[in-house]
Design a protein around this nucleic acid. Structure first.
Lengths: 343, 343
DNA sequence: CACGCGGCCGCAAGCGTTTGCAAGCGGACC
DNA sequence: GGTCCGCTTGCAAACGCTTGCGGCCGCGTG
C-alpha cells in the first residue's frame, strides 16, 4: 500500500520501457501497438506498483474525463432520486461518475452549473430539466455535446431520450375511471411548456375520446409547476365548477397530494366524493391517505437507460438518436372508486 | 460568444503580458504580486475574451479540484436528498461542485467510489456513511484527507461533523409520551454500529430515567438497518411481549412506517392502541396515515453545515475539529395519544 | 556615488498523461 | 545484396495552468 503517488514513469522504469510505451501498453485501445510480451511486462509492473493513472492528467490531454453531468430540477422531488440511482449505477459499472447539479427550474442557475460542469470537461450530459423549447439545449446541440434527456423530452427530436409514454399513462387513467362509471372527468395538467405536461394532457384527451366521453373545457386546468401548492390551488378552481366532476386525472403525484388538501378543505372525501389518479407512482405515495392510484413506471430504469444512451453518444457523437419510451402501467389503490350516486 | 477555447495565453497576449503574470493577476490570492494597473488590464482582457480557466489544467498543477466527494448510503432514502441539497447549495455558492456516490452500505462499494473520487483529485469528502468504527475513515485520517461527517458520527472525535443531538431527540419523544400518560414504553432502535442507533437508544434510556419510568429489557429491540422491513419485523417481536407496550419510541421514520404495517397486521390501531413516534421527520411523513409524530431537525442545515466544515478543513487541514449538533424538536402529529384505558 | 532593496514581471520548469513522428531492426522480395 | 516494409519502440511535444527563481529598474540610504 504505497503512500507516494506512483506515476506512469515509475511503472515504465520498472518495466524497462519508455513511458510512452507504457502508456500504450496500459491502454486497451492502443495495446495492439506494442509487443505482447512487453505489454505483459508493463501490466505486471503496473500491478505490483498498484499504479492508478491520474485521470486529471489524462483529461488534460484527451479532453475527456469519464464524468457525466446530471442536471436535476430538484433532488428533493422524490421522483428524481431513483432516476439518479439508475444513472449512477449504470455509469459506475463502466468507470464513469456523475456530477449532480440542481437547477431549481432556474435558467440562470442551470446555465451556471452547466458551464461549470462543461469547463470541468464532462464528457456528456443527462438533463432531467428539459423544456419543450430550451435555449440551453440549442447551444448544446450546436456545440455537438453529448446530451441526452431523461423523463422529459423536447419538441425537436434532436436528442436521445429515456422517458415514459406519457400519453399512454393518462389514457390508462381515463380508461380506469371510465370503467368505474365516471363520466365527468377533470384534468389537472402540468405546465404546458414541459413535454410531460402536454403528453399527459394529450393522453387525457385521447382517452376521453376512446371512452366516448365529452371533455368539458371548464374541467381542465394547468398547474404552473409540479408542486403540492399548485395542485391545491388548481384543484380548488376545478372543484368550484358545477356540476362537479367525480374524478380528476392529475398529471403528477405531487399535484395529486395538493388535490387531497383541496378536497379536505372543501369537505369532500376521496374517493367517495371524488376519485383521484396521479402520475409517477413516486416513492411512499402508497403510504399516504388514501393510498394513491397512480401511473407507474420504473424510475430507476429510465435513469439507467439514459446513462446507457449518453455513453453510446459519447462513444459516437453521430450515432442515430434514439428515443425510448417505457410503457407505464396503472397501479390501482384506494383513491379511486365508482362515482357517488347521482354523480 | 467565442466557440474556440480561449486560454490563458490568449488573454495574456491581449493584455500584453506574460502568461505567468496573467495567471497571477487572475488569481485573487496572488493578485497583490502584480501592479494593480496591469492586473486591471488583464482582468479586462479576460472579460472581453470571456476567458474561463480550465480547471483540469489547474488541478493537474495544484492537485486541487474545487470538487468534494459526497458519500451517501442510499439517495432514495428521503432523508438524504435535502442534506445533499444543503451541501450542494453551500458548495456551489463558493465555486465548488459535489461528486455524489451511493454506497448501499457496502464496504467494497464504498471503497471503490472513495478511491475513484480520490483519484479524481477531490479536495475533500463529506461522508453520510460513517459507522462508529470505520476502516475507511482510519485510512482517510492517516492520509490527512479533509473529511467531515454528516448525520452520523464516529466514536473517536477525529473528524468534524454536522449532525443532530440524537439523545436529546429521543428524550423529547419519551417526555412527550410520558406526558400523555404512557408508562410502558418500548424502544425500537437502530443498528448499534451507527452513532444514530446508539445515540437515540441512550436518549431513550436517559429520558425514561428522568421521567421516572422503568425500562423493560424485553421492550427494547434493535433493527439491523433503517428500513421498513426491519421496522415491521422488529415491531412484530415487540408486540408479542406481554403486557403490551402502549407506545414505542422508534429510532427512524422508515422503521416507524414498518411499525405501522406490523400494527395493522396485528389488528391494532395507531394511536388508539399504540402510539408511535419516529425520528427525522422525513419529507412526506406528515402525509402518511396517521401523520407521524417525529423528531425533527433541518436536514438542509446539517448538509450546509457539513459543507461549511469541509471547506474550512480544506483551507486548513489542521484547524481544530468542531462537531456541531443541531437541536431537534418534536413535531406532534396524530400517531400519539394517551394510552388506552387500562393500558 | 555605490550599494541594497523592494516591487514587478518574465522565464521556464513542471503537473502526469497521450500521441504524432521517426528511427531501428529484421525479414521478405527482387 | 540492396530496398522496402511492417512491427516496435523511443523521443518529445503538447494539454493549460501555476510558481520558484531571478532579473530589471528605480529609489533610498550611507
Amino acid at each position: 500500500m504505497p503512500r507516494e503517488r506512483v506515476t506512469l514513469r515509475d511503472v515504465a522504469r520498472l518495466a524497462g520501457v519508455h513511458p510512452g510505451t507504457a502508456s500504450r501498453a496500459l491502454n486497451a485501445a492502443t495495446r495492439s501497438l506494442v509487443n505482447s510480451e512487453t505489454a505483459q511486462r508493463v501490466l505486471e509492473a503496473a500491478l505490483t506498483l498498484d499504479f492508478r493513472p491520474n485521470p486529471v492528467a489524462r483529461s488534460l490531454k484527451t479532453r475527456r474525463s469519464d464524468t457525466v453531468g446530471v442536471l436535476i430540477p430538484d433532488l428533493t422531488n422524490p421522483l428524481f432520486p431513483p432516476i439518479v440511482r439508475g444513472i449512477e449505477d449504470h455509469l459506475a459499472a463502466r468507470g464513469y461518475v456523475a456530477l449532480i447539479g440542481n437547477t431549481d427550474n432556474d435558467d440562470q442557475r442551470e446555465m451556471r452549473v452547466f458551464e461549470g460542469m462543461r469547463s470541468r470537461q464532462v464528457d456528456g450530459f443527462i438533463l432531467a430539466t428539459a423544456r419543450r423549447r430550451h435555449p440551453l439545449l440549442l447551444r448544446a446541440a450546436e456545440d455537438e455535446l453529448a446530451v441526452v434527456l431523461v423523463n422529459r423530452v423536447v419538441d425537436s427530436h434532436a436528442f436521445p431520450s429515456a422517458s415514459v409514454d406519457d400519453a399512454r399513462g393518462s389514457g390508462l387513467a381515463v380508461a380506469h375511471l371510465a370503467g368505474l362509471g365516471h363520466r365527468r372527468l377533470a384534468h389537472l395538467g402540468g405546465p404546458q411548456a414541459l413535454s410531460t405536461g402536454v403528453g399527459r394532457y394529450q393522453g387525457f384527451l385521447a382517452g376521453m375520446e376512446t371512452a366516448g366521453l365529452e371533455v368539458d373545457p371548464a374541467l381542465v386546468a394547468f398547474a404552473d409547476g409540479f408542486s403540492q401548492q399548485e395542485g391545491a390551488r388548481r384543484c380548488r378552481d376545478l372543484l368550484r365548477v358545477s356540476p362537479r366532476c367525480t374524478a380528476v386525472v392529475v398529471a403528477n403525484d405531487l399535484l395529486a397530494l395538493g388535490c387531497y388538501a383541496a378536497l379536505a378543505e372543501a369537505g369532500l372525501r376521496c374517493p367517495e366524493d371524488v376519485s383521484i389518479v396521479g402520475f409517477n407512482d413516486m416513492p411512499f405515495i402508497d403510504r399516504v391517505h388514501p393510498p394513491l392510484t397512480s401511473v407507474a413506471f420504473s424510475h430507476y430504469r429510465i435513469g439507467a437507460e439514459a446513462a446507457r444512451l449518453v455513453l453510446e453518444r459519447i462513444a459516437d457523437r453521430h450515432a442515430p438518436v434514439t428515443a425510448t419510451f417505457l410503457q407505464p402501467e396503472l397501479v390501482v389503490r384506494q383513491s379511486t372508486a365508482p362515482p357517488p350516486r347521482g354523480g
